[in-house]
Design a protein around this nucleic acid. Structure first.
Lengths: 146, 146
DNA sequence: TTACAATTGCAACTTTATTGCATTTAAAAT
DNA sequence: ATTTTAAATGCAATAAAGTTGCAATTGTAA
């Protein structure tokens, strides 16, 4: 369901390939993001990073990663920012133009649904689409078991 | 493109039909929302309402309207809340379960795309969809002319 | 006209996010 | 190894968005 771009754990290499310096805050974020099958919210990420990393630094790391196409940002239905690892076909200024996410109303997790495709969407005259994002709300596989 | 549920301007009647008291803040919001072909952001709405209405009251009016199915809330890609009039088939606890929106990257407006339908979406085992929201980013008809 | 629940306004507060600036540091050049 | 420097971080201050508790007000039904 989620591509495992970072499973090789060559975080330093990933940073270098993107012309980014290898620093502790960046490695910390990557370590947390890897091996997750759902997106992580900014507040949770902040707590997981702990006090060693400044909050502002975290914001900037995330912004940089988003610009480089390493992560993508998803705003959930409550307006909370979530971050997830981009599938491998994302690169700088060339994000995958279709993103699909599942928002669980119970646990509030956001899952990335990759490998899906939408049929063409007909827009009114004059409207030009650059990217499409589909957000599904419901109950996830973990929560539906209870 | 947008249904004109409020064009009759019977705002008081609308409130009464929803068991809501007819008050100045509520009428003010409805007056502003009517006759728009795009959703309106919370910050803009706040400015349009002026200082006569308390900020907290506005939040509560919007929340009530959303619960009653009069308005629906859309979070744009920057995390900003926008509100738009629900098409007529929304009612309390029975919202239209598919919402489509167009986010213009130039003017930041959010347009509601009604009268669209999506083909069935296949979710992984255990996931149950309650509602679907499609968000398209691009340039709107006004901005594409320039 | 009264009564009462619904609604509003105010104050205080929390969370999320941004900006400017001084300091530190990764990594390239010497 | 050292030096250099642009990149990155940390800190302080601030802005914006949203929430909560409570007292005062008001719409509406009796």
């Amino acid at each position: 369901m989620t591509s495992r771009v970072l499973n090789d754990k060559d975080f330093a290499g990933l940073l270098q390939r993107n012309q980014l310096k290898v620093t502790a805050p960046r490695l910390g974020v990557l370590k947390i993001m890897a091996d997750r099958d759902s997106a992580i919210s900014q507040p949770v990420l902040e707590k997981l990073m702990g006090a060693e990393v400044d909050r502002v630094t975290l914001y900037r790391v995330l912004k940089t990663f988003e610009e480089k196409g390493i992560l993508h940002k998803v705003i959930d239905l409550n307006g909370t920012a979530h971050y997830a690892i981009c599938s491998s076909n994302c690169s700088e200024h060339n994000h995958q133009d279709e993103h699909f996410h599942f928002n669980c109303t119970q646990c509030k997790q956001v899952y990335c649904l990759n490998d899906m495709h939408l049929p063409a969407i007909h827009l009114p005259e004059g409207f030009e689409a650059a990217s499409v994002s589909l957000s599904i709300t419901g109950v996830c596989n973990h929560c539906s078991k209870e």
